[in-house]
Computed example of a mutant assay.
Amino acid sequence: MPLKTVTVNKSSLLLILIILASINWYFGTLSVEKKIIEIPNLITESVTCHTDSATNNEKFTVFITDQPMAAKLLDALCHTSAINRQYGQVEIRWSHNEQEISQYVGKGLADLALVKDNIMQAFATQTTHGYKIIAQYQDYAAYFFSLKEKPQLTKQYLWGKKLGLLDYPSSRSGHIVPKSLLNELGIAESNMQITYVKSHEDLRNLLASGAVDLISTYWQEQDAERFSLNYITPLETKVSGSKWYLKMATENTDLLCDLQTALHQLSTEVHSQYYSQLNLSPFNCSIRDDKFEVDQNEK
C-alpha cells in the first residue's frame, strides 16, 4: 500500500515548535536546579554574639577548624574588655574546607585564626596581612593505631588494609603524614580501603568498633583506656601544633593581651590534653590575678 502523505500547515508546525521549546525549557530548568542544589556551601557553620558596644558596627571575625571549641571561645571573647570597646559583634566560623580556609586566612578576612603554620606560610600571610603568632599548641607525634597488633610501615603490611583518616587535607596527623607515607611506599589510595571521618574522636570510635584495621592520629593520656601503647607505631615524631594568628594592622596591644588572657583561660577549661598545652608568645603582657595586663614597667 502506498504511504499516505501528511500535510502540516504553518499554524500546526508553529504549535509543535512551541511545545518542543516548552519541553526543552522545562527539562533545562530541572537541570539547572539540580546543579544549584549540588553546589557545596563553603560557609559551613558559625556562632555570633553582640558586645556591650551596641552602636559599633565593627565585627571581630575568628576562624577555627575545631567546632567543639567554638561555644567556649565565643563566650570568652565576648567578655574581653578590648573587644567590648572596639567591636560590636564577634563571629566564630569553623570549617575544614580548603576553599574556605583560603578565603578567610589567605585573603585576610579573619581577625583571629587557629590554623597550621604550613597554611599560613603557603599564603605568606604574615607579610601580606600582618598576622602575628600570639599563642601556639605544643608539637606532637603522629601514629598509626591498631587494635590487635603493632602496625608495620611496609608496603606488604599496609597493602589492602582498612585505614581511617580525617577528611580534611589540612590535618597533619590525620591526613597529610599518613598520605605521604603511602605515597613514599608506592601504595595508591585504590589499593587501600580508606574511610574518612570528621574528627579524631570519630577515628578512635572507628578503630574501637573494628570497622578499620588502622587509624592515623596522635596519642593522648585517655587513649590508654581503650588502646595499647604496644600497638601504636610512630609516623612522624614532631608534628607542628596549631597556632593562633592575630591580624595586627596596628599595634593594638590591648586587644592582643586580652586575647591571650582569653586563650589562656580557655586552655584551663578544655577537656583535651592537646588544647590544654598552650604556649603564649612573648609580648608586653604579664599574668596578674589570672589575667594578662600591659606591663607598665616594660613600656
Rank of each mutant, 00 (worst) to 15 (best):
M1V: 11
L3R: 09
T5I: 14
T7Q: 14
K10P: 12
L15F: 12
I18D: 00
A21K: 08
W25N: 10
G28N: 03
L30H: 06
L30E: 05
K34Y: 15
I36G: 01
I39A: 05
P40S: 04
N41R: 13
E45P: 00
V62G: 01
F63M: 09
T65M: 11
D66S: 08
D66V: 08
Q67F: 10
A70Y: 03
L77P: 05
H79E: 10
I83Q: 03
N84A: 04
N84E: 05
Y87F: 13
V90C: 06
R93V: 06
R93I: 12
K107S: 12
G108T: 00
L112Y: 05
L114E: 01
K116V: 09
K116Y: 12
K116I: 07
D117W: 06
A122F: 08
F123D: 03
T128D: 12
Y137G: 03
A142M: 06
L147C: 06
L153K: 11
Y157F: 13
W159K: 15
G160H: 02
K161P: 02
L166A: 00
P169D: 06
R172N: 06
S173Q: 05
S173L: 05
P178G: 04
L182A: 04
L185Y: 04
S190W: 08
I194L: 07
E201L: 14
D202N: 11
D202F: 00
L203D: 02
R204M: 07
R204I: 04
T217I: 06
E221K: 09
D223T: 04
D223L: 08
A224T: 09
N230T: 13
E236I: 08
T237C: 10
V239A: 02
V239R: 01
G241F: 03
W244F: 13
K247P: 05
M248T: 07
T250N: 14
T250S: 14
L255I: 04
Q260W: 04
A262D: 02
L263T: 02
Q265H: 09
Q265C: 05
S267L: 05
V270H: 01
L278E: 01
N279V: 14
L280A: 04
I287P: 06
D295R: 14
Q296W: 00
